Computed example of a mutant assay.
Amino acid sequence: MGKLSGYQIVVMIIMFELGSTPLFELGIKAKQDSWLAMTLAASIGLLLLWVYLRIQGRFPGMGLADLLRVHFGKFLGTFTGLLFGLYFTYEASRNARDFSELTVMTILQQTPQWVIIFTTALISLYGVYKGPTVFFRVVEMLFPIVILSYGVIVILLFIARLPNYHRLLPMLENGVGPVVSAAIPDIVSFPFGQMVVFLMFWHRLSPGKKLGRIASMGYIIVAVLLIVLNAISMAVLGPEISSISSLPLLEVVQLIRIANILERLDVFVTLLLYIGLYVKMTLFCMAAVIMMKNLFKGSHAAWSAAIILIICGLAFLEPNNTVRLWLGLTVMVKLFTIFQIALPIVVLAVGAMRGLGKKGTEPETAHTADEI
């Protein structure tokens, strides 16, 4: 089983959480306080991260499939693992649809969506087939490009004098109610609750590394970055325009004009969003494949092909982008708290009651043979 370095884990957390998040102005229900809603959600997400780390810490050599069977027993654990596999698959399908919608709205307006989704799925399939070790290395190579690019964008926005902090005022105009309502459960679920997928990969961390410190570092870095991007976007567009914008970050970047030379950077930002969507889709898909393979055996290649085909089918569930956004950002984020909050807390409680993870309680099957 290929091991992952601490740096690779940090990088993947940052790239995964960035993912498709900049596509949306999250917390818009709180208007100019959306960045406060992001901050509150990130704080709650940090508590969820602690839950995930506590679960992983009981049996550091186990992936989520084995953790569920150890805590719930073979039958119930396998059933719960199947549900998690379906959850990961659906999340991947949403990212595939995000990829196609972004492409149609920006650079390939006349291209059928099924062509874009199928092409994206093939690229993702190759990453899944090569396995976590190779995929994490690829993301490690992309990381400096993405971070430097976002940094340049922020600098250019300030050089162009686009952000106006007055658009973030007055703070808490309607009290804390709208902030709490916007943050819980919507932003907690997307993107911070999606960290649950890392229970599929943390057991691959190289021996001797402190997972808690590594995961917390990656989470805090990306949480701060997302809050800053949210605040800057709101400071440029204001709550009125942000609330009706389909791609707020692209509209923000389109406003950059410096000396009548530097402009039209939206294509550049689109490429960054493509990278984020690809990383997120592939990691979810890989998690689903590994989960199914661990639960039901079979070859990695066969499960990879099967999951990718299901993802392509699920990507067309919603008839249009409006329905997709409504379903994803208002309905599914609440449903997904079952996997992100409820089940992990139940696992934590069951383990505490049974004394799992203590010396002498680790089962013989704790270290699953994972050859991917």
Rank of each mutant, 00 (worst) to 15 (best):
residue 123 I to E: 00
residue 340 Q to E: 15
residue 59 F to Y: 15
residue 150 Y to M: 07
residue 220 I to T: 12
residue 284 F to W: 12
residue 218 G to K: 09
residue 194 Q to A: 05
residue 40 L to F: 13
residue 120 T to M: 15
residue 98 D to Y: 14
residue 154 V to Y: 04
residue 107 I to C: 04
residue 318 E to V: 02
residue 68 L to Y: 08
residue 197 V to K: 05
residue 139 V to P: 01
residue 228 V to E: 04
residue 72 F to P: 06
residue 142 L to F: 09
residue 111 T to F: 04
residue 11 V to Q: 04
residue 22 P to Q: 06
residue 309 L to Y: 05
residue 22 P to Y: 13
residue 96 A to S: 08
residue 258 I to S: 01
residue 264 R to Q: 11
residue 261 I to F: 15
residue 225 L to S: 13
residue 122 L to A: 14
residue 343 L to T: 15
residue 313 G to L: 13
residue 6 G to A: 00
residue 127 G to N: 10
residue 305 A to I: 11
residue 270 T to P: 03
residue 34 S to F: 02
residue 77 G to W: 08
residue 231 A to H: 07
residue 136 F to C: 04
residue 19 G to L: 12
residue 195 M to S: 08
residue 299 S to N: 08
residue 308 I to P: 01
residue 293 K to C: 04
residue 209 K to C: 05
residue 364 E to G: 12
residue 59 F to D: 04
residue 248 P to S: 03
residue 240 E to L: 13
residue 311 I to K: 11
residue 103 T to Q: 00
residue 98 D to I: 00
residue 349 A to H: 04
residue 83 L to I: 08
residue 237 L to F: 07
residue 138 V to C: 04
residue 344 P to I: 03
residue 292 M to T: 03
residue 124 S to A: 14
residue 357 G to L: 12
residue 313 G to V: 10
residue 205 L to Y: 10
residue 330 T to R: 14
residue 167 R to I: 00
residue 296 F to R: 13
residue 128 V to A: 11
residue 200 M to D: 06
residue 294 N to A: 07
residue 282 T to F: 00
residue 75 F to A: 14
residue 1 M to Y: 13
residue 216 S to Q: 01
residue 183 A to C: 08
residue 201 F to A: 03
residue 339 F to Q: 06
residue 358 K to F: 06
residue 349 A to L: 15
residue 113 Q to A: 02
residue 301 A to W: 07
residue 196 V to C: 05
residue 279 V to C: 00
residue 301 A to C: 04
residue 35 W to Y: 11
residue 308 I to V: 13
residue 166 H to V: 05
residue 225 L to C: 02
residue 372 I to E: 13
residue 334 K to P: 06
residue 348 L to D: 12
residue 302 A to H: 08
residue 231 A to F: 09
residue 30 A to Q: 07
residue 5 S to K: 02
residue 109 Q to N: 14
residue 350 V to Q: 12
residue 15 M to R: 08
residue 313 G to P: 10
residue 176 V to W: 15
